[in-house]
Design a protein around this nucleic acid. Structure first.
Lengths: 253, 253
DNA sequence: CGTTGAATTGACACCGTTCAACGACAGTGG
DNA sequence: CCACTGTCGTTGAACGGTGTCAATTCAACG
């Protein structure tokens, strides 16, 4: 799996832990070569604005990106992406997005022109099918967020979010056995969970007291992952993973 | 637009008000003919269960269907579909869904085998592209639900939901100028908005007192649509409609 | 006319928001 | 070097939204 990133430094994490094994080497090469441009951005950079015409799509190589919406002077985060995610593939078919695409912490991205995607749609039906699959994965994540917002109180929502992020990062080899690093602040978590930063702080404090999870200066950590998942009513099936998670050594330093 | 339903009684509402105009007559015929089976179900019938292998997809012809999840002895609704929606197209690429597909009120559906869809993927790239588009529409709706769950209190959430449903029904010619009919109960609304039935009742009562909207025995009605939309912070752009809404005479009887 | 599920109402406890204040820390410029 | 500044994290207290439990009314239907 290490070789995958060396061989495909830009797109090696695309669908990793999911259906990447269904890609042939030829298809992986095609995808890697489709990246026409590389960018690095600092925290908080808006890559694409809500409503803006969209003529290329972003693949996230390193860092985090969130889907956010400003309304009534407040920010709401409706999704978050991790390395390997084809972030705004939705924009390829929809032309315009209903939300902003913004970096959370420093990020490195690759860009693929829609003109090139159109060629691939015609010449690479199997690859196209997997593009579709990856957007359906996003939809499944959205649904789970809807469910957890309807179902859980704040402290369990964060627990679920932490569990989800751990699994998604583990699938692409970026989680440690007892946690992961991320540039997310409590404010970010609050905006994802639909609470205020003040209350998020208390919710996190509760998780600490209950020994469910800890969150300090950009590191989420826990002793007992099963306990975290139980607390957040987390069930990984909606991530459509392969089961074999790739746990790196993010927290082993 | 009336002719569309007469000519394509099963699939005539697919993408109506959205990108249906992008379909050629030939493509419309192909889609209509792809429906291999017709079914009618009473209220509460589970068409497809969470986790179940899925080898055909459902297009909703008449009635309502919701995407629901049972967990911890409670039901949560993570999405609702109206006539013309290709309900579980997600299952075509994902194989299994993470939620149940259940009728809300009596419904009439058409079934399309995945084998047939596979043929269409190969022979009809343009049509396939619109299938993809329609699933991205679902994703956009999910995101908006996430946003409103994060952003609004119960009474405004219902207002938003009512506004959304009105627009979606209007696009397929099933809304009246001052409201629409639906078999949804207050319990259903509660399960969609993440509140309890008791509180949903008070929320609806508040909308009544404020003259924002009324809800009685299966009919949602309002005097001033703009007021309803303002109350629910509703902005129709995420529905990716064409602007020209087809208002029927549902409430004119 | 009795049954059933939906709609409604009241009382009370709990979750979450708001406003306000303070501590910790990093980056900046004098 | 230290003072200044801004952002994040933390805490307290008052207030308002929501959940829970319980009881009652209402409409639809056999």
């Amino acid at each position: 799996m290490k070789g995958e990133i060396e061989r495909y430094p830009l797109t090696g994490r695309f669908l990793m832990g999911r259906l990447r094994h269904a890609l042939s080497d030829r298809e992986k090469d095609i995808l890697e070569d489709a990246v026409s441009d590389l960018r690095e951005y600092p925290d908080g950079h808006r890559i694409l604005a809500r409503g803006e015409l969209c003529h290329r799509s972003t693949i996230l190589i390193e860092g985090f990106i969130n889907r956010s919406i400003f309304e009534n002077g407040r920010r709401y985060i409706v999704g978050i992406q991790v390395p390997g995610d084809f972030v705004d593939l939705h924009g390829f078919a929809l032309k315009r997005l209903d939300h902003d695409i913004v970096t959370a912490g420093p990020a490195r991205i690759g860009l693929i022109d829609h003109a090139r995607l159109n060629e691939l749609m015609a010449s690479e039906p199997h690859l196209s099918r997997l593009f579709w699959f990856s957007t359906l994965l996003d939809a499944a994540l959205h649904r789970q967020w809807v469910l957890k917002l309807e179902q859980l109180k704040a402290n369990r929502r964060v627990a679920h979010l932490m569990a989800e992020l751990w699994h998604r990062l583990a699938m692409v080899g970026l989680a440690g056995p007892t946690g992961f690093r991320s540039p997310l602040t409590q404010i970010d978590l609050a905006d994802m969970c639909g609470t205020t930063p003040v209350h998020m702080n208390r919710a996190i404090g509760e998780l600490r007291r209950l020994d469910v999870a800890d969150f300090r200066r950009g590191t989420v950590s826990f002793d007992d992952r099963a306990k975290l998942e139980r607390h957040g009513d987390f069930d990984a099936t909606y991530l459509y993973g392969e089961g074999a998670l790739h746990i790196g050594n993010e927290l082993r330093e």
